[in-house]
Design a protein around this nucleic acid. Sequence first.
DNA 1: GATGAATGAGTTTTCATTCAT
DNA 2: TATGAATGAAAACTCATTCAT
Lengths: 209, 209, 209, 209
Amino acid sequence: MTPRVTEEQYFDTHEKILRAAEVLFSRNGYNGTSMNDIVKESGVSKGAIYSHFENKESLYLELQEQQTAIGIDQLKSLFTPKDSVMQKLEKVIQIQFDNTCAVPEDNCRMEMEFLVTASRMDKLREKIKDNFEVVHQFGVDIINEGVKKGEIRQDIDVDSVVSILLAAMNGLSFLWLATGVPFDLEKVKNTFLTFVFKGIMTASRDIDS
Amino acid sequence: MTPRVTEEQYFDTHEKILRAAEVLFSRNGYNGTSMNDIVKESGVSKGAIYSHFENKESLYLELQEQQTAIGIDQLKSLFTPKDSVMQKLEKVIQIQFDNTCAVPEDNCRMEMEFLVTASRMDKLREKIKDNFEVVHQFGVDIINEGVKKGEIRQDIDVDSVVSILLAAMNGLSFLWLATGVPFDLEKVKNTFLTFVFKGIMTASRDIDS
Amino acid sequence: MTPRVTEEQYFDTHEKILRAAEVLFSRNGYNGTSMNDIVKESGVSKGAIYSHFENKESLYLELQEQQTAIGIDQLKSLFTPKDSVMQKLEKVIQIQFDNTCAVPEDNCRMEMEFLVTASRMDKLREKIKDNFEVVHQFGVDIINEGVKKGEIRQDIDVDSVVSILLAAMNGLSFLWLATGVPFDLEKVKNTFLTFVFKGIMTASRDIDS
Amino acid sequence: MTPRVTEEQYFDTHEKILRAAEVLFSRNGYNGTSMNDIVKESGVSKGAIYSHFENKESLYLELQEQQTAIGIDQLKSLFTPKDSVMQKLEKVIQIQFDNTCAVPEDNCRMEMEFLVTASRMDKLREKIKDNFEVVHQFGVDIINEGVKKGEIRQDIDVDSVVSILLAAMNGLSFLWLATGVPFDLEKVKNTFLTFVFKGIMTASRDIDS
DNA sequence: GATGAATGAGTTTTCATTCAT
DNA sequence: TATGAATGAAAACTCATTCAT
C-alpha cells in the first residue's frame, strides 16, 4: 500500500542522518556535537531526525552498531582456508593498521570516539563489550590454532596475548588521537610484527637463521 | 604585611579545588563535571574558584600538569644505577601496571580522561604531546642503552618499539575503561613481559636454554 | 456513483477517531493528548484525521458537541407527564449522580475535562455556555413549575437556585477529580436531597413533625 | 558573612518570580504558561528562576503552598469567640464569595487553576487533598458544634453536608470560569444562605410561620 | 578577595500541521 | 483520498561565566 518510493526515501533520509552524525561525532565527539549541528550537516529537519531516532543517544548507538557490523564482516571475510596462523595474524594486524591508521584523519577517530564515550554511556559500554568479546574470541581462536599446530608457544596465557595485541593496536590509534603525533605506519607495523613473532630481545636472534 | 598564614590559606584553597576537580573529572569527565559540582565538592565558593583559575579549561589543564609532574618524578626516581636494561624495562612495566591498573576504579581513570579529552582540547593535546615526548624519550634512552649493550636486537626501530610498548600499556587501561571488563593483571603483566623478552612464536623456544 | 459503503466507511472512520479522542482526552486532557496519540489509539492515519477534522481544536469541539447532544437528549427523555416537580427534581439529581459520579473513574472525567478546558479555549467556552444555558433553563422551568404549583417557596430567586444546584452537582465531581478523594455517593445524594427538599420546598415546614 | 542585603535581594527576586508566575498561571494555566513567559513577566533571567526553583512544577507547587497558607490563615482568624454557629457559617460563606467571586477576573482563577491542574499533577493533587481535608475538617467542626448546640438538625450526615457546601461554593466559581457567565453575586449568596439555614437548620422548621 | 545570585546563549526534545507520493 | 515522512517553532532546562555587594 505504501509505495516503494516512500520506503526508499525513508532509507535515504535515515542514511543521510547517520552519515552526517558520523562526520560530526567523529570530528567533535558525542558532547561536542549538537542535534542542531546534525540538522545543518544532514539537511534533514529536526523533527525528521527525531522520528527516525528516539533521541541523541539512540542515534549514536545505531551508528555504532552499523560500524561494528561492518568491522565484524570485514574480519569474517579476511581469511582464505589456506592461511597459516602466521599469515592470519599478519592479515589481522595489517587490516587493523590499514583501517584505523592509514587515513587517520577520518578512520580511527570514529572508532576511538566510541571507545572513549563508552566509559560514560552504559548502553554503549555494553555494546562495546559485546563487540570486544567477539573480536577477542576471534583472536583467541587464531592463537589457539597456532598453539595446537605448534606454531605458537604453549607457555603463554592465550587470553592475555589477545588482550595485549588488541590493546597495542588500539593504543596506537588512541595515542595518535591524544597527542596528535602520527607515527611512521610502515615502520611501526613491521616492528609490531617483529614483536609478535620474535620479541625484541637479542637472545632470540638465532630464530631467523 | 601579608602574613604567612594567608599564603598557606591560598595554597590550601588552591589544593582543595584541584582535589575536588580530580575526583569529579576522573569520575564524570570534563563535560560531565560542572563548575557547580566543583563548588559543592570542594566547599570553595564559585568566585574563589574563578579567582584561582581563569576558567574551567585552565583548572583542568593545571590539574593535568600537576599529575604529569608527579608521573615524571616517579619515572625519574625509579632506577638505581645498577639496574640492567632488562630490569629497567621490567620496572617501568611494573610501575605502569601498578599505577594505572592495580586499583583501576580510581587510578587510571584520571590519566585516561586526560588522554581522551586531549583529542577535543587543543591546549591539552599540546601538553599531552609534550609529556608523551618526554616519556617516549625516556623509553628510547633505555632501549638505546640496551641496544648499545647488546641486550636488545639492533634490527628494530627504537621509536616504534617505544611507541608500541606505550600503546600497549595505555591500550590496556583504555580497553578496560571502554568495556568495563577487567583483565587478570598478574597474568597479563607476565604475558606482556614474555612478549617483550621473547615474542610469542615457538621458534624462540630455545632462548631460555 | 459514490456507493453507500463509502459513506458508511467515512462515518466509521469518523467515529473511530472520536472514540479514540474521547478515551485519550478524558484520561490525559487536551494538552496531554497529542495527535500522534490519537493516530495510535484510533488506528487511523494522520492524514485521514486531518481530512476529517480541521485541526486538534475542531476535533475536540466536535467531540464535545456529540457529548452535549447525548446529555441533552437524556434530559429531555427523562420525565413522564405524570411526574410531580419533586419527582422531576429527584430524577435530575439522580441522573446527575449516576452519570458523573457513579463510575467516576470514567464518567465525569470527560465532562470535567471540557469544563476545565473551556476557561482556556474561547470557542469551547462559547459552546459550554450555550449548553449550560439550555440546562439552566431546563432547571428554571422545573423550579418555576414548582413555584406555580405551590410546591416550591416563592421567596427565592429561581436563577440562583438553579445555579447553586448545578454548581453543587458539578462541584462534587470537580472536587473528586481535584483531590482524588471519593465521597460516599449514596450518603451525599441523600443529604443533597434533604438540602433541596427541606431547604427550598414550602412543604418542608412541617415534614419532620 | 553574607551581607543582609543579599538575603533581602534573594527574597525580592523569589517574590518577583512568584508574583509573575501567579499572574500568568492564573491567566493562562499551567500548560499555557512557558518559562520564557515568566522570564519576561518577572524581569528575572531564566537562570535565576532555575536557581530559585528546581523546575516549572516546583515553582507551581510553591506558589500553591503560599496561596494555601494564606487561605488557611484567613480561615483561622475569621471567628471571634462570641460567634454563633449561624454567624460562623455566614462568615465562611461570605468570605468564600468575597474571595473567589467578588473580583472574579483575578481572584478565583488562581484557586480554580490549581484545582483543575490537580487532576493531572500527582504532587499537586496530594497537596490539594491535604488542604481540602483541613478545610473540610474546619467545616465539620462548625457543623458538629451546631449539631451539639441543637442549632443544626441531627439527622444529616455531617461529612456530606460539608462536602456539598464546599462543592457548591467551588462549583459556582468553576462554572463561572467555564462558561464565562457571571452570576448576580448578591442574589446567589442570599439564596445560598437560605439553602443552608432553612435547609439544614432545625430552627427552619417554623421560621416562615 | 570572597561570595553566590544573576545572566543568557545553547541544549535536547516535542508536536500540531503540511504535503509529496 | 489516504498515507506518514517531514517541518520548524517553541518548550523545559543547563551551565560557564560575570559582577554587585
